[in-house]
Amino acid sequence: MYSIDTDFPVDSIPSGTNLLITGPPMTGKYDLLVELLADSYRYDERAVFITTQKSPDQIHADFAAGLGVDSVTDLGIVDCAGRERSGNHADDEHIRSVSSPADLTGIGMASSELIETFGDRGHRVRTGLSSLSQLLMYADVKTVFRFLHILTGRISSADGLGLCTLDSDVHDDQTVNTVKQLFDGAIETRNEGDDSRAFRVLGLPDADDRWIDF
């Protein structure tokens, strides 16, 4: 089980679970993803973050801010933006660069290497991807489905925890429903008005579907 310190309707999530974080744009999906992955540092686990937009430096800063610390170490990052390595983490051995979000083979290989590296060191691994909507801009839904089938399968077989974000309002219902098939459950997000946001969890054992502010 993966323990969750974030305000959540359950205290833990079964190993091998993959969850889809879905909702309209600007409803806090990325922030929630970082919170759930950052909880790994409280339990001697490791996290692998697949980013299609934000830089490794920004992700490190967001993790540190969420944990209330100056910096974090041993954070696996697959940077899909094709940018040159620079900044505070230019020489970090746990960062892999991929040419673009279109290189799904490269993303899969890089993430698998990091998951295996941390697993060989005796750590359980939480893996996050932000975002599937970016991948769907570069490849059709069938291609992304095949990539996700392999990624979620690897996470499940390694007794990991997988979390992926998707902007639900950007895609048609058929695309969203196709992607959902590969996940064990979902976390839905929405804006509540007055700058507040909420989420609910669907599909997890013992979790009710109440909306929780965050």
Score class of each variant (00 low, 15 high):
residue 1 M to P: 11
residue 2 Y to E: 02
residue 2 Y to M: 11
residue 3 S to V: 14
residue 3 S to P: 14
residue 5 D to Y: 12
residue 6 T to G: 00
residue 6 T to A: 08
residue 7 D to H: 10
residue 9 P to G: 10
residue 9 P to T: 07
residue 11 D to M: 04
residue 11 D to Y: 00
residue 11 D to C: 01
residue 13 I to E: 07
residue 14 P to T: 02
residue 14 P to R: 15
residue 14 P to L: 07
residue 16 G to M: 04
residue 19 L to A: 06
residue 19 L to K: 08
residue 20 L to C: 07
residue 20 L to T: 05
residue 20 L to N: 05
residue 20 L to K: 06
residue 24 P to E: 15
residue 25 P to E: 15
residue 26 M to H: 06
residue 29 K to W: 15
residue 31 D to P: 00
residue 32 L to D: 05
residue 34 V to L: 07
residue 34 V to T: 13
residue 37 L to Y: 03
residue 39 D to W: 02
residue 40 S to Y: 07
residue 41 Y to K: 02
residue 42 R to Q: 07
residue 50 I to G: 04
residue 52 T to S: 12
residue 58 Q to S: 12
residue 58 Q to F: 04
residue 61 A to K: 06
residue 69 V to G: 03
residue 71 S to Y: 05
residue 78 V to C: 05
residue 81 A to C: 14
residue 84 E to T: 12
residue 85 R to Y: 07
residue 88 N to I: 03
residue 89 H to N: 05
residue 89 H to Q: 01
residue 90 A to K: 11
residue 93 E to R: 09
residue 93 E to T: 13
residue 93 E to P: 14
residue 94 H to G: 01
residue 94 H to A: 13
residue 95 I to E: 09
residue 98 V to C: 02
residue 99 S to N: 08
residue 100 S to F: 03
residue 100 S to I: 00
residue 101 P to A: 01
residue 104 L to R: 00
residue 109 M to T: 13
residue 110 A to K: 01
residue 110 A to W: 03
residue 110 A to M: 06
residue 113 E to H: 12
residue 113 E to G: 02
residue 115 I to T: 14
residue 116 E to A: 14
residue 117 T to V: 10
residue 118 F to E: 04
residue 118 F to M: 06
residue 120 D to T: 06
residue 121 R to E: 15
residue 125 V to N: 11
residue 126 R to I: 08
residue 132 L to I: 14
residue 133 S to P: 02
residue 133 S to I: 02
residue 134 Q to H: 01
residue 134 Q to A: 09
residue 135 L to Q: 00
residue 137 M to Y: 03
residue 139 A to C: 05
residue 139 A to P: 00
residue 140 D to F: 03
residue 142 K to W: 03
residue 143 T to Q: 11
residue 147 F to Y: 13
residue 148 L to G: 02
residue 148 L to S: 01
residue 151 L to C: 00
residue 156 S to G: 10
residue 157 S to H: 12
residue 158 A to C: 03
residue 162 G to Y: 04
residue 166 L to C: 13
residue 168 S to E: 15
residue 173 D to T: 09
residue 174 Q to Y: 08
residue 174 Q to N: 06
residue 176 V to H: 11
residue 176 V to K: 09
residue 183 F to C: 04
residue 187 I to K: 12
residue 188 E to R: 15
residue 192 E to L: 15
residue 193 G to H: 10
residue 194 D to I: 05
residue 194 D to Q: 13
residue 200 R to T: 08
residue 204 L to E: 10
residue 204 L to D: 09
residue 210 R to G: 08
residue 213 D to E: 14
residue 213 D to V: 10
residue 214 F to A: 01
residue 214 F to Y: 14
